[in-house]
């Protein structure tokens, strides 16, 4: 039985959330469907989530990745705080930021531990592949150490 199941790649579980006041959810809802259609299980938290809510979801749902959607200028404050909150909880889960992030902020965000950034206009395949890659490189990292 166990052998049979493990021949299929394990189904990725992804938590999707928006932090803070920002209420633009057109993008995150599209991403939810893209990931579902790429065969993933999306735990959709939606709008106005706290760091604690996201941490809770990652723990209880044993998520493989987190997608944060950001459409205000608050990505520079909120995304690194999310990364820190995960680290504090001992969760080794990649954070992928999607939405509106200006070029000059990409490097600083990556340095602060964000796994990847998806801009507007990323294709469905890019979105799904970015999540898969982020999970794979996090696994490689954690199995090495």
């Amino acid at each position: 039985m166990a052998d049979e199941v493990s021949t299929n790649p394990p189904q990725l579980r992804v938590v999707l959330a928006k932090l803070g006041f920002d209420g633009h959810d057109r993008g995150i809802k599209i991403v939810a469907r893209i990931l579902r259609d790429a065969g993933m299980e999306v735990i959709y938290l939606g709008l106005r989530q706290s760091y604690k809510n996201v941490v809770n979801a990652v723990e209880q749902e044993d998520a493989d990745a987190i997608g944060l959607s950001m459409h205000n200028a608050s990505h520079m404050t909120l995304a690194p705080k999310m990364v820190a909150a995960l680290a504090e909880a001992g969760l080794e889960v990649p954070v992928v930021v999607g939405g509106i992030v200006p070029d000059e902020d990409i490097e600083p965000l990556l340095e602060k531990g964000v796994a990847a950034i998806l801009g507007p206009g990323a294709s469905a395949e890019e979105v799904a592949q970015t999540i898969r890659d982020a999970v794979a490189s996090m696994r490689a990292e954690t199995s090495q150490a």
């Binding site: 259609d37 790429a38 959709y44 939606g46």
Partner: peptide
């Protein structure tokens, strides 16, 4: 789960949490 892709969108946590 979606019968076509095997994926799913699970949205029940929010209101419960």
């Amino acid at each position: 789960s979606s019968p076509l892709t095997g994926g799913a969108i699970l949205g029940d946590r929010v209101r419960m949490e």
